[in-house]
Design a protein around this nucleic acid. Structure first.
Lengths: 128, 128
DNA sequence: GTTGACATTTGCCAATTGGCAAATTATAAT
DNA sequence: ATTATAATTTGCCAATTGGCAAATGTCAAC
């Protein structure tokens, strides 16, 4: 759960900065205290479903999406349609990742993949 | 919330009896303690999202359905989610990008968003 | 009536969440 | 450098959740 914990917090922080909102602004828009939001982002607390529901809209998430990210909903449940589309892939594509990338021009999307490939080849070198 | 509280508990109890399961059988199938399940049914406790997820399948609920009953998900979410999905898809995810990413574990997929954020903030610095 | 098996409820408490207020850090202006 | 303001973090604790073990209730057989 630690893995998911820090992952969710990081995603939430990234999204908050992307929107962009300060902790205080998000607190005001969501009705969740800024201290709690900060702790969630740092992985010191795990948000309950009620909190997730409150922060979904100000952060621009679908509730389903956020609940799945948090591990409250099974990944299969909301994205069945999308999964059917990506059935050819050996694995499934994270809906959050897909959504964020889809907002970018194709060349940016591919540039990101270029960076990933570069990182992978560096990582490959690190295993030797 | 008291109204919803006792309502949810009653619904859960009815469904458990309908299936039919004893508290102990449901506890065994769901991994949630029978005492907690009993308290939830009697409205003495409110189930967290994690508990709801565990009991959804043995009781024959859709997770979304149960989360909406509990008030964790907005009732409109499923329908709006599809519309919202359409609205946000002002751009397309490159099939190549989708394919490459789908081959990666979720951890790596999400790390890619970090890379994207980094690139965007670098670009932001370059325009000044 | 008693007994035994099964089912449910209760007592208790550890763990976790979530908010208030104070402390600390970061940032901009001078 | 200092100062003021904004943003974030920390200390603390009330409230809530969730499980273990014991107590109680229910039902069938005798």
């Amino acid at each position: 759960m630690d893995y998911v914990n820090s992952d969710l917090g990081r995603i939430l922080k990234q999204q908050r900065i992307t929107v962009p909102l300060t902790l205080q602004e998000l607190a005001a828009e969501s009705g969740v205290s800024s201290s709690h939001l900060g702790r969630i982002e740092r992985g010191e607390r795990f948000p309950s479903a009620r909190i997730l529901r409150k922060i979904a809209k100000p952060l621009g998430f679908n509730e389903d999406e956020l609940f799945t990210l948090a591990g409250f909903l099974s990944p299969q449940t909301p994205g069945i349609a999308e999964e059917a589309g990506t059935r050819y892939a050996s694995r499934q594509l994270d809906p959050y990742v897909a959504r964020m990338l889809a907002e970018e021009p194709t060349e940016v999307q591919r540039a990101v993949i270029g960076v990933l490939s570069l990182l992978k080849s560096i990582a490959k070198g690190m295993t030797k």
